[in-house]
Design a protein around this nucleic acid. Structure first.
Length: 560
DNA sequence: CCTCTGAGCC
């Protein structure tokens, strides 16, 4: 039963031939009016179904009961088939038909299941399609590989990973393995959604069943681990796969180089670079870019420039991406002469500045404290008609806020929206911070309520921005408002929130030595008691505090 | 598979 529709076409054909045959017989011999009636009812029922009148079609099917042994499962299948071809299909009606068949007969056959399944799939009702497939199994039929494979592809297209995993699970019950592109897509999607364990599970199950996927199958897992600061776990997986005979490609090595650089494990990162070269796998521009990026973030500009040199000597052409990264750090460090030189090089190579170049220059200058230059740069970008994005605007908001012009930033955000760019949380948080820095904390809270936050609402940074300002001002009623709001939104504290609170306690509490005797969790609980009734304090602490702590917070206590 | 933007301490 590889193709439900194909079989069905044959089934319908037989049905019509039989109908024609019987009609002739009745006309010639005038026997058995019941049979004649049945054939008429079949036609009527099918016409109703084809015109989306499922109620009438079922009613007609019911009339067939006058004929012994009717309606048959074929009549029901015909109803389902015709209804699915009609204009206005309500799939829940079909589920009702199916449930009715199961309870009162005739029992669904393979064709019933295939027709229903294909219908559900065609109309994108994936949950019901899976339901039908599961029902098929319990009724003793085996869903075909191609049906389930189609279902998996559709689930992936629809973006529901949970459904996709259920379909995969179901497929594995029959020892069906998804095709390479499908399983790779599933693994990639899972990784992107942060479901690394699930992605690894999919990969390992396929591997254990002897289905081979190459480096492109597991590279997304290596990358996801490295992006989640789990480089050593990635390395373990990497070595395990190598032992199993997998041949890693540039992308696999680059993931590790990226991960170790990101975690500032420079020895490991450079070791990976050496390893890949020894394995005859030449690093590409992306490999170099990852190291250079994190070297720059770490302030190691000399090492970054050294690597840029090495990459050129190895015959790997630097692209605008890597130049932008270096430019940013040069601006950050105020190395004006080198900025000029690099800009010349970029120009000679025929690259023209893009969004990222402008962001690198302005953002770097801002961080380097040259706010005036950063401001002029972006004003020129805006007036020249260069393309801009939200990040560029956000840097500009930050610049205005640093100049104590946060109200202008707010005004400018409106003009950004007028050209069709939606502010993100960074935009809102930057402006909130600007207001707080100008001691306009009440206005900030008002904006907090007025902003049209994206689907996820204000995030931890938003809350910490207000919390920090409230703590600095020793404004306990404001702190309380923020904390209630955090609890209401289900946003948990992090180390920055607690650092802000500890600062507040330091201002309002004279005997610091008491703090030494107790752990940070207890400190928080005691602190709450300063401005909250005990019961409230307990309930909020237990729901919002996730128990993080660090020596850095303690530094605040000792030195604050 | 690589580049730009937001919160606390030092």
């Amino acid at each position: 039963m590889a193709n439900g529709r194909g079989c069905w076409t044959v089934g319908i054909g037989i049905l019509f031939q039989r109908g024609h045959f019987w009609k002739q017989k009745v006309e010639k011999q005038g026997i058995d009016s019941h049979e004649f009636n049945y054939i008429e009812l079949q036609h009527r029922m099918q016409n109703y179904a084809l015109s989306s009148c499922i109620g009438k079609a079922l009613e007609t099917l019911n009339f067939m009961k006058n004929v012994p042994g009717k309606p048959t499962v074929y009549d029901y299948n015909a109803l389902i088939h015709c209804y699915l071809k009609s204009k206005d299909v309500l799939l829940e009606e079909l589920v009702k038909v199916y449930v009715g068949m199961k309870r009162f007969g005739p029992l669904p056959n393979a064709l019933t299941f295939n027709t229903l399944f294909n219908g559900m799939l065609l109309f994108g009702n994936l949950k019901d399609a899976l339901f039908i497939a599961e029902e098929m199994l319990t009724s003793g039929f085996v869903p075909s590989f191609s049906s389930l494979s189609k279902l998996l592809k559709k689930s992936l297209e629809s973006g529901s990973l949970v459904d996709s995993l259920r379909v995969l699970d179901f497929m594995l019950e029959f020892d069906y393995s998804p095709t390479d592109p499908t399983s790779n897509l599933l693994i990639t999607r899972l990784c992107k959604a942060g479901m690394i364990c699930e992605a690894y599970f999919v990969f390992s199950v396929l591997l254990s069943k002897g289905y081979f996927c190459g480096a492109y199958g597991y590279n997304p897992i290596l990358w996801a681990l490295c992006k989640a600061n789990q480089s050593y776990i990635a390395l373990t997986l990497f070595c395990l796969l190598k032992k199993k005979g997998f041949v890693h490609n540039v992308c696999s090595y680059t993931a590790l180089v990226y991960g170790f650089s990101r975690e500032r494990l420079w020895e490991e990162a450079f070791c990976c670079l050496k390893e890949m070269e020894a394995a005859g796998c030449k690093p590409n521009a992306i490999t170099y870019t990852t190291v250079v990026k994190f070297l720059c973030d770490d302030g190691q500009i000399e090492e970054a420039l050294g690597l840029l040199d090495k990459m050129q000597k190895e015959g790997c052409d630097p692209d605008l991406v890597i130049y932008n990264i270096i430019l940013r750090e040069l601006c950050h460090q105020n190395r004006i002469v080198e900025i000029g030189e690099l800009v010349q090089v970029i120009d000679q190579k025929g690259f023209s500045p893009n969004l990222f170049t402008h962001a690198a220059l302005a953002g770097g200058m801002l961080k380097g404290g040259r706010i005036g230059i950063a401001h002029k740069l972006l004003v020129d970008v805006f007036s020249s008609g260069c393309s801009v994005d939200v990040a560029i605007y956000n840097i500009f908001f930050n610049i205005l806020c640093c100049l104590n012009r946060s109200k202008e930033a707010l005004f400018f955000m409106r003009s950004m929206m007028e050209i069709g760019l939606r502010p993100n949380n960074v935009s809102y948080n930057t402006i909130l911070n600007g207001f707080c820095e100008e001691h306009l904390i009440d206005e900030a809270l008002e904006l907090f309520d007025r902003f049209e936050w994206a689907a996820n609402g204000p995030d931890l940074v938003s809350f910490n921005t207000i919390l920090s300002a409230a703590c600095k001002q020793g404004n306990s009623s404001m702190i309380r408002r923020v904390l209630y709001r955090m609890e209401y939104e289900g946003v948990k504290f992090n180390i920055i929130s607690t650092t802000c609170l500890i600062q507040y306690f330091c201002y309002s509490w004279e005997d610091f030595r008491v703090l030494e005797a107790i752990g940070i969790h207890d400190l928080t609980v005691i602190g709450w008691k300063l401005f909250l009734p005990t019961e409230e304090a307990r309930s909020i602490v237990s729901t919002t505090y996730d128990g993080q702590s660090s020596t850095k917070s303690w530094n605040v206590v000792y030195t604050g």
